[in-house]
């Protein structure tokens, strides 16, 4: 019988909050950047996906100590939680800032 891991909920919640804070700031900053650069819509979304993934890689390497293979200590399924789960969740923030700054700059 495999040994079941018991998790401490408050720490897991805190880690998730920290991740979503970084992702919120990233998507807002990327939105401002996209508004200033004014790319074509398709490239705008590509810019978002690339920028978001790069910042998540930075989070994975620096905060989760992913290169030392310790990411599993902080998240139950680190790759899914960091890179995939909030990708669509943060798009509205990005589009909001993109439209606002684009309207101001143009």
């Amino acid at each position: 019988m495999s040994k079941e891991t018991i998790y401490y909920g408050p720490n897991a919640d805190e880690n998730k909050k920290k991740l979503s804070k970084v992702q919120d700031v990233t998507s807002l900053a990327l939105g401002v950047g996209a508004g200033i650069l004014a790319p074509e819509p398709v490239y705008g979304f590509l810019f978002y996906v690339i920028g978001y993934t790069v910042s998540n890689i930075a989070f994975y390497i620096t905060c989760c100590e992913g290169l030392q293979g310790r990411a599993g200590q902080f998240y139950k399924s680190p790759v899914k939680e960091i890179f995939v789960d909030n990708l669509l969740h943060n798009i509205p923030e990005y589009i909001m800032m993109w439209c606002l700054v684009y309207a101001l700059v143009k």
Partner: peptide
């Protein structure tokens, strides 16, 4: 022990509390 995040496994999380000598 870790600069940015806290470990979520119960054994490691409680080890930190023991270091601080507090009990959640």
């Amino acid at each position: 022990d870790h600069k940015y995040l806290k470990p979520i496994e119960m054994s490691k999380a409680t080890a930190e509390f023991e270091k601080l000598k507090i009990n959640p």
